[in-house]
Design a binder for these strands. Structure first.
Lengths: 143, 143
DNA sequence: CTAAATAAAGATATTAATATCCTTTTATCT
DNA sequence: AGATAAAAGGATATTAATATCTTTATTTAG
């Protein structure tokens, strides 16, 4: 469903939200990749992508790290779009360039409702909600 | 959502069902790859996979080709499982080896219902239903 | 001012998915 | 029997995703 990069990105964003709910300190790469059990160098690349996409902010230097702009309410769809692009939401499931109601592929109408439900769920689930669940130990970043 | 191979596989299966509703003749590779607009050699490989998975039957030789066992009612989930494996239905969305109700990843409960709905839709949509829609020109194999 | 710690950037390596090409096997037609 | 046409199988090529390594830029602590 999601690329590996996107899986890491979701954990990254939720972890930073979780951390920042407890303390205002910036969150660094080492802490992140340890907490979500992801390869360090690859995680750094994803952090760069998220920063470029403006879902995260960062500062360099000795006390540098990553942090969230609290005025921004980020949902799962934002993250998926930033990393995997819009294909999960917009692209034809069977690869048509233009799969539309008047020229539908054989899955277009079959899965239209289900795709929409999924999309809406991702749009309506924000990272702070997820962070709260982790805080209550109802969900985990790693096994 | 689906791999490219799986996209082709769904079209292949639906096309053969569509063809066989009209005539009992076997359906050959050339006809298939032309009809669904897929690369010929790659399509041959997917036909092999489908045949090995027993979703299709084939005969070699001069009048050879592919055909469906009419006593078998094949749904989309069968095809997805045969080509992409069970990951869409069973695997953790965030890569846990064992993502369970008592050790859930941060998406486990969030998307449980939506994944189930999708799974059930794929289980309940069979290739003959799709073939009929194509026959009524309500859906197409290529643009 | 210098050393240390951090993110950013660029280069490279590895692996998996997609795709093609060539040969072999099988069945049919003449 | 021999030529032909089809699927099956094996080898290779190409591309994209995943991952690592090295260098550079930035900031701060001492």
């Amino acid at each position: 469903m999601f690329s590996k990069s996107c899986e890491y990105a979701i954990k990254i964003m939720a972890f930073i939200a979780f951390k920042q709910a407890k303390s205002k300190e910036l969150v660094g790469l080492d802490l992140i990749s340890e907490a979500i059990d992801s390869p360090r160098a690859f995680t750094a690349k994803i952090l760069q992508q998220l920063t470029k996409a403006r879902l995260l902010k960062s500062t360099r230097g000795r006390t540098g790290g990553f942090f969230l702009d609290k005025s921004q309410n980020i949902n799962l769809a934002d993250i998926v779009k930033a990393i995997d692009g819009p294909k999960l939401f917009e692209d034809c499931l069977l690869g048509f360039d233009k799969c539309q109601d008047d020229n539908p592929c054989v899955l277009h109408y079959q899965l239209k409702k289900e795709r929409n439900t999924l999309k809406n769920k991702l749009l309506s689930t924000d990272i702070y909600t997820i962070a709260k669940r982790v805080n209550r130990q109802k969900a985990y970043f790693k096994e």
